[in-house]
Design a protein around this nucleic acid. Sequence first.
DNA 1: ACTAAATAGGATTCTTTTAGTCCTATATTT
DNA 2: AAATATAGGACTAAAAGAATCCTATTTAGT
Lengths: 131, 131
Amino acid sequence: MFRLSKRVEYGLMALQHLARRSGVATAREIADASNIPYDLLAKVMQSLKRDGIIDSYQGVKGGYALMLTPEAIPLKRVIEALEEDVALTDCNANGAQGCDRFDTCTIREPLGGLQQKMAETFSGMTIAQLL
Amino acid sequence: MFRLSKRVEYGLMALQHLARRSGVATAREIADASNIPYDLLAKVMQSLKRDGIIDSYQGVKGGYALMLTPEAIPLKRVIEALEEDVALTDCNANGAQGCDRFDTCTIREPLGGLQQKMAETFSGMTIAQLL
DNA sequence: ACTAAATAGGATTCTTTTAGTCCTATATTT
DNA sequence: AAATATAGGACTAAAAGAATCCTATTTAGT
Ligand code: SF4
Ligand code: SF4
């Protein structure tokens, strides 16, 4: 329980790699360096690109590069770029539609506070702290 | 991602219920009150009992009651009583056996720190804060 | 002694999520 | 034109999570 998904782990490794080399790196290069499945990493990179955390260059000599300084990339952003529905509870993620018990639930509000604290923790750590 | 398991949600509801009534309550009563599947709750209660958070009484007029004051039951304990392998990463949960990349992994240590912060968050909130 | 109501716990099944793979299209450099 | 990259859809496999079923044991009350 509470595991970071592989997508997120791979994403962090990739961002760390990019931050260290501060230049362009290909998905293949990163996959080889970190021993992660290329196909999966490719998807992860695409998601990070869509979010605007990294930029991409196609074709030969292409690859990926950071769009921001490592200090400006909190883990929270990385996680949310790679996973939808990041939340402690269904209600927290999708409101009343997320859970039948929404109206009667007696633990919903306190858990909302907890979620808040979690978010702060993940906002407080950045890629810079992985270097 | 990051969802509390149903076991944990149900466990928290049950503990809240017991804390509010400060006496004995049956699994059936709690299940009905909170709209949760009885069979599943029954397992959850057994786990909480094994951990020593609650006590149980068998037979007619039996049920469950808190062994501790609500203030003395941090969420961390509840979660760990109900789930094994609570950790952000496989390595964090099972050490080197948990992951092939253990030796070469470059994000392991920083994530360890993050896990630490998470643990503090969950230690800092107790059942008393659900009342 | 018997019955009813409760916990204890094993085993199994169903569902959902996560991880991984495969294939094709498009862009760009040489 | 060929080689090397990203882009992205579709699919499959594996694992985790949730729920259910069934049987045994304990205990209060009659
Ligand atoms: S409303 Fe209550 S039961 Fe439903 S998801 Fe939120 S916390 Fe869980
Ligand atoms: S060693 Fe690295 S890859 Fe393996 S589980 Fe830990 S963080 Fe993830």
